[in-house]
Amino acid sequence: MRLRIACLLAGAGFALAPVRAADLVAEIRDSLGNLVADAVIYAEPVGAAAPPPRSDARATIDQVNKEFVPRVSVVRAGTQVSFPNSDNIRHSIYSFSPAKTFTTKLYSGREAAPILFDKTGLVVLGCNIHDKMVAWVLIVDTPWYASSGTDGLATIRGIPAGEYRVTATAPSVGLKGYSVPLKLDAAAARQTFVLEAGS
């Protein structure tokens, strides 16, 4: 939710320019035809540069009941991600992903400093203490991204018309992503992605 608000804010800033923008709805399925939840799509403009990130971009990944919430998130590179730890017990989260290698202890009652995710790539978070806690954070360098819900639909709102490379991926369910070039105009676009297994 907060991510979405952040995204919207970023999008709103961009919308000062009188540019035609539309929504892109991606339907993501797996090779068996099932709808894929927690899939991520993002659109990178081709030829043009994406608007720069906000310096105060913030994201939150909470620890609730010994689980990361959300499990899958997308953030713009340069976002400060905080881990509030709503559990009353401590966590010791870490990641060995090349995009962000870090460890941080989250004690109950104490706020930990947010972590800056500045490189694009996929970051898999774990907890040393609770080894089943896993979260995927996809760091992209574009403001236009979304993740799918259980309906398998991910909607990126207000994408200005133009040529983009749209990538869909669902690493949390073991599906590898791929990109398609997409020309977006003012009309709402819809794209279906069929993701194969792999990483």
């Binding site: 009353n88 017990i89 401590r90 010791s92 202890k105 004690y107 109950s108 009652g109």
Partner: peptide, 12 residues
């Protein structure tokens, strides 16, 4: 590792 207080904080 963490100290005992920190380890057991919140576990009641």
């Amino acid at each position: 590792g963490d100290n005992m207080r920190e380890v057991h904080a919140g576990h009641k």
